[in-house]
Design a protein around this nucleic acid. Structure first.
Length: 154
DNA sequence: GCCAACGTTGGC
DNA sequence: GCCAACGTTGGC
């Protein structure tokens, strides 16, 4: 069963344009340091799952592209790199703590802003719109996906 | 296991 | 820069 996800990225780190220009058209989703988000990548994602590419912590937060999961999970090497801001002293090669997947952007869309998402009755239960939600990776239902797909292409 | 303190996220 | 909300840490 194909599943759907929303993945946040700060455009100052990796924008949808950066991801499109990436060599091989896939980007490794480095830097996730939250257990729930890691578990989604490690335990639930399948190659081919749909991904909404979301820009966060920026002037115009919102969905900016459609992507897909492009790899099975594997260790995020930045956890072993003492010079990386994602370094984790408690992680070892034998026992990696942080996993990630590769993501391939299939399409850069128009910017679908947060306010427009909030205006949709069909999206009222969407996790990203819940008060106080900060999870960088959240599951999206098939219904939510269809609704957003329509909005992106209208 | 509790919980206060602290750090981070992220919209505004 | 502000601040609400949440996750993590660490002393007990």
């Amino acid at each position: 069963m194909k599943r759907y996800w929303l993945m946040k990225s700060e455009p100052s780190e990796v924008s949808v344009d950066d991801a499109l220009k990436a060599r091989g058209q896939t980007v490794a989703w480095v830097g996730v340091r939250n257990y729930q988000a890691r578990n989604f990548m490690r335990d639930a994602m399948q190659v081919g799952d749909g991904v909404l590419f979301y820009h966060s912590s920026c002037a115009e937060p919102g969905v900016v592209g459609v992507a897909e999961v492009a790899s099975t999970p594997y260790p995020d090497d930045t956890q072993f790199d003492a010079k990386s801001k994602y370094f984790d002293a408690k992680a070892t090669q034998e026992n990696p703590r942080w996993m990630m997947v590769d993501v391939r952007v299939l399409e850069k869309t128009r910017l679908l802003p947060l306010a427009e998402l909030r205006a949709q009755e069909a999206l009222e239960d969407m996790l990203i719109l819940k008060r106080g939600n900060r999870l960088s990776i959240t599951p999206v239902t098939a219904e939510e996906w269809r609704c957003i797909d329509r909005l992106l292409h209208k």
